[in-house]
Amino acid sequence: MQAEWDVVIVGGGPAGMSAALLLGRARRRVLLCDSGEHRNDRATAMHGFLTREGIPPAEFRRIARAELAAYPGIQVAPVAVTDAQARDDEGGFAVTLAGREAPVLARRLLLATGLRDELPAIEGLEELYGRDVWHCPYCDGYERRDRPLAVHGAGREAVRMALEVRGWSHDLVLCTDGTEIPARDRARLRGLGIGLRESPLVALEAEEGRLRALRFADGSALPRAGLFLSMPQRQRCELALKLGCELTSRGLLRAGHDGSTCVKGLYTAGDSSPHLQMAIVAAAQGTMAAFAINADLLRQDLAAEQRG
């Protein structure tokens, strides 16, 4: 592995790989670091990605990596990034890779590390997450349309998700674990025929690996075919905060439309920034960030040539 790169990309999902593709085509030297952990590892299929509808995430990554391999300037490394430090006033970084003592140097750094979902402590959830339990109705609602569904979560975000999911099924129940729901929202849910269960959800009952019912703390059970989670999320990687990035009120990285952050030379793309959390959107963000990075490097290169 060479010691100096035009761009180091952290994260090997749709955002990171799309950015690597455009930068490789711009003849940039790109190191794409993929730790092997991806937010959609538990998903059985990706949806909403034109020409790749229903593809398993692992197969999507295999095809994408094969396409990246055609560009000699791109190297994909199955390694985690453990640290990064700004090294000059030109936007450069020293990036530490797991298992490697000396850092690699990057003129620009792109973080495409995504988010980590904080799953609630519900018995049986781990076994069903990604199969009959999800976090995005746009990604997985169609396959359970008109089936008995439920939403689990707290506060206004859970109510918002319940209103969304009703577009896929009118047989719907919101499970709140007893958290406060304002009277106005209660009336709205009731008027739309959305049920409300306030007893804590303690277990998911499965049969032959598929969700069959929700079990509550009061002993009651509710037959359901799918469950959507409105749950907290946090940054998967702490590098952005360490480097001085700002967060929004929702815990997402504050960035411009091109992925630029308040830290010179540092860009972000994908679910970690405030945009729709879908694979096709993340891929587009990666492309936009790559375009901005290459334009940034071009300005720097041309200025250096003129000084020389």
Results as ranks from 00 to 15, higher is better:
156 R>Y: 09
140 D>S: 02
153 G>C: 00
146 D>T: 13
128 L>W: 10
144 R>P: 06
151 V>Y: 09
160 R>N: 07
160 R>W: 06
127 E>I: 15
128 L>I: 12
143 E>S: 04
158 A>Q: 00
143 E>H: 00
140 D>E: 01
162 A>W: 04
161 M>R: 09
130 G>N: 13
151 V>N: 10
161 M>G: 08
153 G>Y: 00
149 L>K: 04
155 G>Y: 03
144 R>N: 00
155 G>R: 02
138 Y>N: 11
156 R>V: 13
160 R>T: 11
130 G>L: 13
162 A>C: 10
146 D>N: 13
128 L>Y: 11
134 W>H: 15
128 L>A: 12
128 L>N: 12
132 D>S: 11
136 C>G: 05
145 R>M: 02
129 Y>K: 10
142 Y>R: 01
135 H>P: 04
133 V>L: 14
147 R>A: 15
142 Y>M: 05
143 E>I: 04
129 Y>S: 07
134 W>C: 12
139 C>Y: 04
127 E>S: 15
142 Y>P: 00
143 E>M: 01
151 V>S: 10
132 D>T: 07
142 Y>F: 12
133 V>E: 14
158 A>F: 06
150 A>K: 05
158 A>V: 03
147 R>K: 15
155 G>I: 02
138 Y>G: 07
127 E>F: 15
132 D>L: 09
156 R>S: 13
156 R>W: 07
134 W>Y: 15
129 Y>L: 12
149 L>Y: 00
154 A>R: 13
154 A>I: 05
161 M>F: 04
130 G>F: 10
157 E>R: 14
136 C>E: 09
148 P>M: 02
136 C>S: 07
138 Y>C: 11
157 E>Y: 12
156 R>T: 14
131 R>A: 14
133 V>D: 14
